Amino acid sequence: MATTAWTRRHVISLIDFFPAEYDTVLQTAASFREVLSRRTKKVPTLQGQVVANLFFEPSTRTRSSFELAAKRLSADTLNFTPGNSSLTKGETILDTAKTYLAMGTDLMVIRHQQAGVPQAIADEMDRLASLVGVLNAGDGQHEHPSQALLDLFTICTLLDPERPRLDLLADKKIAIVGDILHSRVARSNIWSLTASGAEVHLAGPPTLLPQLFADCGKDRAGKLFLHWNLEPALQDADFVMTLRLQKERMTQHLLPSLREYHQQFGITRDRLKLCKPNVKVLHPGPVNRGVEISSDLMDDPEFSLISQQVTSGVAVRMALLYLMGSGKA
């Protein structure tokens, strides 16, 4: 499976991932994609290990994907629901994590609305000299590594189904459109895509795409560009990734209206005419139909990779759990 020795105990951010690590994840995920196509979709690689999904924030896709990935690897799973937990009685997040550690947990998948919580739990596990690996499933406005890796896998398998790898994206133009400021998905994708040597073009209203994002492109293999108009970002793009517009931003007066946002930055068939003829569209979900992307375009398999992203998510998360847990198997 993996072509390079895996040394990471935790996966919190992609900012310091090396190209060889991306390729290891991609090639391991390709192996598990083949497993998922079989009649018997289970392998015993993590049998006897415990994966705890500690989701302090609501989630459907990510949580279900991690749970299924763990079960496909034959691991035992524990699912945490904050509303029915001791957090309501005053227990701290670190105490909750240590409780799961005491139960024999080997891997913790953490999602939290505040940035830094997965890192804090990883630091506590290291301080306790445990061998528990921590995987960030999305924290605040920080990062969402597994989503960016499944996006990368979706694109690379389209370009080379047999051997997905990072260098396939060198010199490709990829547009990321929408609420960049509040998107942990965008941040992780910026790190992974610029590591590949791709041209990454960010587009959004000035209130949702501040100039400070230009610093993310420094000292990276690829190039990063900022646009406050959609057209230059889409011009000759190979891939377009549109982000969920978080409607709660409307109360912060960052946008005049959803209709105006769609008129200026919504992805439609007409706007895709600016892109390469074989352009593909991605969206991490959940989708606000008719806001970030037109409903007909979202359901068109000629352009949309959205369903493939969901499928890729299980294989990629199997790969991450396997790589992080195989040393203890």
Rank of each mutant, 00 (worst) to 15 (best):
L73C: 09
G217Y: 13
T154V: 02
T194P: 01
F18C: 02
N79S: 14
K98G: 00
G133W: 05
R184L: 09
Q308S: 14
K280N: 08
N288M: 06
Q252G: 00
A203Y: 09
D299T: 07
F303I: 15
V177H: 12
L159M: 06
K273M: 10
A97K: 00
A315D: 07
K89M: 05
A198N: 08
C216L: 15
A102S: 15
L168N: 01
T24M: 09
G48D: 06
G222R: 04
I155Q: 02
R259Q: 14
E67F: 03
L101Q: 14
A175E: 11
N84T: 15
R269A: 10
V279K: 11
Q308M: 06
A319P: 09
I176T: 11
D215M: 11
G90M: 05
T81V: 12
G138M: 06
E91D: 14
T3Q: 10
L245A: 06
M108N: 09
V25M: 02
L274F: 12
Q264L: 12
V185D: 05
T194F: 09
V240E: 11
G285K: 10
L68I: 15
I174P: 03
D238Y: 06
A214I: 11
D139Y: 02
Q114I: 13
V134N: 03
E57D: 12
K273V: 10
H201E: 00
R269G: 13
Q47P: 01
P205H: 11
V185E: 05
G178F: 05
Y322L: 10
T62D: 00
V200F: 13
L26H: 04
L131C: 05
M108C: 06
L149C: 02
A2G: 14
T7I: 12
V281Q: 10
D160A: 08
E91F: 05
T60Q: 04
P58E: 06
T96Y: 13
A203E: 09
P206W: 08
I93N: 05
N278D: 15
P161H: 02
E124V: 00
M108A: 04
N288I: 08
A115W: 04
Q264M: 10
D238K: 07
L212N: 13
G104R: 07
V35I: 03
L78M: 14
A30P: 00
K71M: 13
C156S: 09
Q263C: 03
V134E: 01
R271V: 10
S74I: 02
T105V: 15
M298D: 11
